[in-house]
């Protein structure tokens, strides 16, 4: 098989959903750091979001399955921890989809800009930790709904 151009590979990877938040892709999440050919081997470099995130090994498996389905036989997935993952690497598309899904996207100010359900700015923190390591638990004091906030790190 001829070497598939890497921009095509990126396109394929952009169709691999995050296992915990299926509305965004692993590319949107910013955890695919590099895709390159090393001789006949395709190297994909992935960085974990949080060091103990249980989704990390599932993500590597999903990436491998997707690429094999596209006919890539010789591939190597490498974990890179430096530079450490930051929410600055979330794509604009990913941020918009998170909000549509009901998860407030990360903000440099350290808290959600508005309630992802009703848009109110009257929000308060319930806990620094939410349903997954990457999220915190907030609530809206107008519509009274709780919601997840994607922590800024």
């Amino acid at each position: 098989m001829n070497q598939v151009p890497t921009d095509k590979i990126w396109e394929w990877l952009d169709a691999v959903p995050d296992p915990e938040i299926p509305v965004i892709s692993v590319v949107d999440l910013g955890i695919v750091r590099d895709v390159c050919w090393d001789g006949g081997t395709l190297k994909v470099s992935v960085t974990p979001t949080y060091s103990g995130c249980p989704a990390t090994s599932v993500i590597s498996m999903d990436i491998e399955t997707a690429l094999r389905d596209h006919g890539i036989k010789d591939l190597r997935i490498e974990t890179s921890i430096s530079p450490a993952w930051t929410t600055d690497w979330l794509s604009e598309k990913g941020r918009a989809r998170l909000e549509e899904y009901g998860i407030a996207p990360p903000q440099p100010a350290g808290g959600p800009e508005r309630c992802p359900h009703c848009g109110s700015k009257a929000v308060e923190k319930v806990s620094q930790f939410g349903s997954t390591p990457c999220k915190a638990h907030w609530r809206c004091t107008d519509c009274l709904e709780p919601f997840d906030y994607f922590k800024c790190i």
Binding site: P48, Y50, S51, G52, C53, P54, I81, V126, S127, Q128, F129, G130, S131, P133, H137
Partner: peptide, 20 residues
């Protein structure tokens, strides 16, 4: 429940750091 989740997440981070 919130404290349970927070403690479990903290433990998870610590175990992840242990792996490194």
């Amino acid at each position: 429940l919130e404290e349970d989740i927070a403690l479990a997440n903290t433990a998870l981070d610590l175990i992840g750091q242990t792996q490194m």
